Amino acid sequence: MYRHDEVAELSGYNYRNEDSNAALQGWTDLINDWFITLKKSGEHTPSLTKVLLLTRNNINVTASGLLGGTRGISWYKGHCAIAAITSTHVPAHEIGHMLGAKHEDSEVIYDGWWHDTIMLTDEFSSMRGNAHRYSDKNRENIRNYLDRFE
């Protein structure tokens, strides 16, 4: 793990963008230059190295300058992601994507109230609680992804 002062060229990235895909692509482009150096060092397994930019704010900026609704974005099974720390759920969600978890394999758990597993995002998520866990299927997806590297 690197602290922001150890990778100054990365810590100043302006992630706020009207287009969250453009923000992720810009982050990926910046990371790729650093990633080449990382691969040459031999310190890390490139396929297992993941870079998550944690932000205080959401990614999107509306025309009026107010922040929009995209809280996180990542490449599926990729090495780059951006996540706002507005909720513990967001970074865990984006890490899940990088490790092979999918929205369609999420679930709602009922234990007296309805709770979303980490990968679930739908129009009703704001009314349900957070189960603070991946679904069994997404745990399997993550395990299968990681098993490729043993």
Rank of each mutant, 00 (worst) to 15 (best):
residue 134 Y to F: 15
residue 125 S to P: 07
residue 30 L to A: 12
residue 24 L to Q: 05
residue 33 D to C: 03
residue 62 T to I: 09
residue 27 W to Y: 08
residue 40 K to I: 11
residue 55 T to A: 04
residue 36 I to P: 00
residue 115 H to M: 15
residue 77 K to C: 14
residue 24 L to P: 02
residue 83 A to H: 05
residue 32 N to A: 08
residue 103 H to T: 08
residue 131 A to E: 07
residue 121 T to W: 12
residue 2 Y to P: 00
residue 46 P to N: 02
residue 88 T to G: 13
residue 66 L to M: 15
residue 2 Y to W: 09
residue 99 L to Y: 10
residue 25 Q to K: 12
residue 86 T to M: 10
residue 73 I to V: 13
residue 61 V to F: 09
residue 124 F to T: 14
residue 96 G to I: 03
residue 86 T to A: 13
residue 20 S to Y: 10
residue 43 E to F: 08
residue 122 D to W: 07
residue 56 R to Y: 09
residue 100 G to H: 03
residue 92 A to W: 13
residue 124 F to E: 15
residue 10 L to Y: 04
residue 14 N to K: 09
residue 130 N to Y: 14
residue 22 A to N: 11
residue 109 I to R: 01
residue 70 T to R: 03
residue 93 H to V: 03
residue 87 S to F: 04
residue 13 Y to K: 06
residue 35 F to L: 06
residue 108 V to R: 06
residue 23 A to G: 03
residue 65 G to E: 10
residue 6 E to Y: 00
residue 140 E to I: 05
residue 66 L to Q: 12
residue 64 S to A: 12
residue 25 Q to T: 12
residue 92 A to D: 14
residue 17 N to G: 02
residue 96 G to W: 01
residue 42 G to L: 06
residue 55 T to F: 04
residue 59 I to T: 02
residue 21 N to C: 12
residue 81 A to C: 03
residue 4 H to V: 14
residue 48 L to I: 08
